[in-house]
């Protein structure tokens, strides 16, 4: 299969993949018996890729992201992040995580929210100021740095939470339906900004979404998942150019990929329950 990311960074043994999962499985023990959230997931994400995870509720896409982040422990198989165990990667602050909700602390101003990881990781005061200024500028929130989160709209809050995840320059960005609660217009705008940011920073981004257009618009690769048990049913490479204006979504190439994603989702989804 043709892989655009491998052109950017020639595979070499010195550069381990951002994420590599082999036979990964996770079973939750619940009161109603075991629930298999992930089963037999094999996936390699190379550095610089933008990978979307798409699938219906319960397909394990969020769980997979949380396993990468060491927020859940797999029960079968193996996974490495930057060539390390997820725990080591977390302890070395290898990734920034953007949650479904902005989860900004209401007692901190926007700039102090962005400063939170910097304080915890012990950056110097001057470095902290420079990073806050740079990341707030990146998400166009410079004028709002003295505001409190509850004084801003939902879209602005989510942008601030992205700034917070970017501030300490982890080269892996894990995003769990970050725009799910926002309206279409704001979402388009943030999608565009996210692509620009990815272009400028050449980070690796793992992006969980419910939306087919969003997945196709953003990604270099789309991982289609299906529930019960949560598993990967298809991995679709996108051959769209890296420079993507919003109206690329009306082009036949875009629609063809969207159709493949839709077929993949349908194949993995049973309606007989």
């Amino acid at each position: 299969m043709h892989n655009p990311a491998s052109q950017l960074q020639p595979a070499s043994p010195a550069v381990p993949p951002a994420v590599s999962a082999r036979g990964l499985g996770l079973t939750f023990e619940t009161n109603d018996g075991p629930v298999q959230a992930l089963a037999d997931v094999d996936l390699t994400i190379n550095k610089g890729e933008f990978v979307s995870f798409i699938g219906p509720s319960g397909c394990g896409k969020t769980t997979f992201l949380r396993v990468i982040a060491d927020l859940e422990q797999p029960t079968q198989g193996a996974i490495s992040v930057n060539g390390m165990s997820p725990q080591q990667a977390r302890e070395r602050r290898a990734y920034g995580y953007v949650f479904q909700a902005a989860a900004l602390y209401p007692w901190r101003t926007i700039e102090n929210n962005v400063a939170l990881p910097l304080e915890i990781m012990g950056f110097s005061a001057a470095d902290k100021r420079a990073r806050i200024a740079r990341t707030l500028d990146l998400v166009n929130l410079t004028g709002f740095k003295k505001k409190f989160p509850w004084q801003l709209s939902g879209g602005m809050q989510q942008r601030a939470s992205i700034a917070r995840a970017l501030s300490f320059d982890a080269d892996l960005l894990l995003m769990d339906e970050p725009f799910g609660a926002l309206d279409e217009i704001v979402r388009d705008h943030l999608n565009q900004q996210l692509l620009e940011l990815w272009e400028r920073t050449s980070k690796t981004i793992c992006f969980v979404t419910h939306s087919i257009p969003e997945a196709v618009y953003l990604s270099t690769r789309i991982v289609v998942m299906s529930p019960r048990p949560g598993r990967v049913t298809d991995v679709i490479e996108s051959d769209l150019p890296r420079d993507r204006p919003l109206d690329i979504r009306e082009t036949p190439a875009f629609l063809a990929i969207a159709a493949r994603v839709r077929d993949g989702l349908r194949a993995g989804h049973s309606y007989d329950e």
Binding site: L71, R90, R93, G96, Y97, F99, A101, A103, W107, I120
Partner: peptide, 25 residues
């Protein structure tokens, strides 16, 4: 909330850091 605590975990924050910066406020 669990998200707020997960956030601290993703920063590999220690017990005292999460206590002072999140749980006490």
């Amino acid at each position: 909330s669990s998200i707020e605590r997960d956030l601290m975990r993703t920063y590999a924050a220690g017990y005292w850091q999460s206590l002072v910066k999140l749980r006490l406020p």
